[in-house]
Each structure stands twice: as C-alpha cells, then as structure tokens.
Amino acid sequence: MFQNQTFTSRYFDGVSAVPEEGTVLIHGQTIDFSSRDTAHKLGISQFTEFTLTHKGCKLVLLPDEVRESPVLEIFCSKEEAKKLESLWIQTKKTKSKTHAFFYSIREMNPLVLGILSILIVATIGFFYFKGLELVTHFIPISMDKSLGESVQLKMDAQFEACNTKATDRFFSEALKRIVPKGSPHQFQVSVIGSTIPNAFALSNGKIYFFSGLLNDAKSQEEVLGVLAHEVAHVEKRHHMRNLVKAGGTSLAISLVVGPGLGNMEFLETFTEIGSTILVLKFSRDFETEADITSIEYLKSQNISTSGLLTFFQRMQELEKEMTKSEKNPKDANAKDDQVVTKSITDFLSTHPATDERMKTLESLIQSGKKGSIKKIVSDKTWKEVQSVCLDFKNSDSK
C-alpha cells in the first residue's frame, strides 16, 4: 500500500510540550520517525488510536499510567490518511476475533453503520419495554390498591359526589354482572356533579362517572359499555403497567443522559409520574385491550354490546358539531358551547375515539353472539339515574 513513502511529521513524546519536528518513512507495517536529534522505529499495531485530522492523521501510542501517551502526527492528503487508517485497522484485526469484529464495524460505511446502530437500539428498546410488561407480574395487587387509594383521597377532597339510591342500585347491579368472578378488586362507583361526559377508573377499583355522561345517555347499554370498559382497565392493571412503563422510560433516559440519579431526582420524578399517571390517558394498545375485554364481559352476561359503540359515535358527532360552533360562533351561547366542546375533547383525550378504534369495536360486536338488550334496573329507576345531579347541571349552566 505504501512503498517507502516519506511524510512530514511531528512527534510528542508525552513528556515535553514541544514536539520533535521530522519525517516518517512508511514501509510495510512499520513507521520510522526521524528528526535532527532522535529516531523512532514504531510498528503500526502499537498505536491504540487513529484519528483523521484536517492536515492528515494523528496516532496515539499505548497509554501510560505514569505519563501521557506519545502522539505521532503525520501531514498528508485525505486519501493518504484514509489508506494509512485502513492499514492500521488491518493490523488490529489480526490480534483476536474480538478485535476483528470491532474493527470490521469501524470499516463500515458511516450510513450503513448508522442504520445498523438504529436497528440495534430499536431492538434493544423493543425487548426492554417488553421486559417492563413482565415486571408487572411481580408487583402485588396490593400496590394497585395503595396507589389508587392515594389518588382517591385527592379526588374525594376535590369533587363532591352526588350519588342517590337509584345510582347506587344501578351500579351495584351492573357491577355484579360485569365484574368477572374471582376478581381481586373491590369496585365502587361514585357520581360527580359535572356536565363533562366522562368516566375514569383508579387502580384500586374506584370508578368515577361524571353526571353529564348519565344525563345524556341514550340507554342503559351505553353506560354499561363505558362501565365495562373502565372495569377492564382495572382488571388488566393498565394503571400499574402504565406506571412501570413510564418509570422504566424515565430510568432509561436517566441512565443514557446521566443527571438525576446522583441527587435522587429520578425518584422524585418517578413519584410525580405515579401521582398523575393513574388518571391520564392510556396508550392506544391499552385502550384497544380494554375495548376487547369489555366486549367479552358484556357478551358473557348476554348484555347488548352496541352501547359502547353508539356512545363513542355520539361523542364524535358532538365533537364535530361543537368544533364548528367554536369556529363560527353565531349567538350569545357560543362561550357555553366552547366549554362543552372542551369537555367532550377532554373525554376523547382520555378515551380516544379514533376511526380505527371504531372499526375495531364494530368488528368485535359483529363477531360471535351480540347479546340482547338487557335492562339492569327498571325504567323508573333508570329515569332517576339519568336525573342525578341535575341541580348541579342547571346551576352550572346559569
């Protein structure tokens, strides 16, 4: 590759800050450096580092525990520096299989190497997050209950429940039918006075229904569908799985980036995540799993499964109407419409009713037995359920 070629060079011996100016003669795998006062015969394999520079290249000798490692700088063209680097890599690859593997990677095209690196990182990330799913199996259910209870205290202090005998009876009967046998969770439903058509569950089995959802429901089946969905979130431990994923992601970032572990900021971050993740939206996978599971619950009790679908369809239509009203306000009630729009949007942010999800629900309902329209309570009791918290709603709209 190099036939007794000579290049201008300088040599730092690791002791003096002043380099020796001289020339190098490259022949075979040997580099002969000579200056006016000294001469050094060095094998290319002796150098532990090779770096391309704008003037040529820089080679670093074996590190020394006592002094800085000597450095040889060679001034040459970019093409000649790359040829010398290739020669250096070939000598390194002959040392061992490990060296051969490592330096073969270094020889790769930067673009190919970048793509390969992304694939490796993606693969490691995939198995890392899949492993986080397994972690949940080792966490006792009591942890779900404890986390849920801590959030429930804040919820009960912030919102006033307006349960009635009718709502207690309806949800009590509904839970008896929907909750799977042998469930380790104790479910309880609390109705909150609010026009927001929303519902969410805590990891301890406490489920909150906003009265707006009950007031506007077109049938018992709609509420049963939403209830089954929330029960599925708890049964599938989505809160804990979400928390483990969030904590695992935070830990991974901390390990890669660095800060946060030394001063316990990571633990503080993890605690903050734990206090909020229980009432935040779930991932699309969790929502789909809750949809599938809720349909299974309803079908097992021969309860109509169409309620959940019609409920989300109604929410989508309302959102579209209110969005138009928000863009083109025509009357004095525009402000109230915007409030309702935000309420519906808030619901859809925690229960994303995407077109894809709607199609999934439709296919689930059409397959297997569809269930029959089954009333949990009498029409009279249902009317009482639908009128719950109306005083709050009326006062809220004034």
Rank of each mutant, 00 (worst) to 15 (best):
G193W: 01
T271E: 08
A199I: 03
A246R: 15
G258L: 13
K206H: 10
V257L: 13
P197D: 04
Q220K: 06
M240F: 12
G212E: 07
Q186Y: 14
A201T: 03
A217F: 00
G274Y: 04
R241W: 04
G260K: 07
I273C: 09
T276V: 10
Q220P: 03
I277T: 09
V223T: 05
F270C: 05
V226C: 00
L255C: 07
I253K: 01
Q186T: 13
G274K: 04
I196G: 00
F209N: 00
T276S: 08
V256W: 08
S254L: 10
A217G: 01
P197H: 05
A199V: 04
R237Q: 13
T249Q: 11
N242L: 08
G258Y: 11
G248W: 15
K218A: 08
F270Y: 07
T276Q: 08
H185P: 02
E265R: 15
V231M: 10
L224Y: 10
N263Q: 09
R241V: 02
G205H: 12
F209W: 01
P259L: 05
Q188T: 15
V231Q: 09
E272V: 15
E272K: 13
F200E: 09
E221L: 07
T271A: 14
S190N: 08
P197Y: 10
S190Y: 01
A252H: 15
H239I: 06
G258R: 11
E222M: 01
G247P: 02
L251F: 04
M240P: 10
E230H: 12
N215F: 14
L255N: 02
G262W: 05
H239A: 03
A246E: 14
L267F: 09
K218L: 11
V279L: 09
I277G: 08
V257A: 13
G262K: 15
H233N: 07
E222A: 04
L255I: 08
I273G: 03
P184N: 14
T195G: 13
G225R: 00
D216G: 14
S219W: 03
F200R: 02
T269Y: 03
A217C: 01
K236T: 05
L224A: 10
G225M: 02
F187S: 03
K218M: 12
I277F: 14
H233E: 02
V244D: 12
I253V: 07
G205Y: 06
N198F: 09
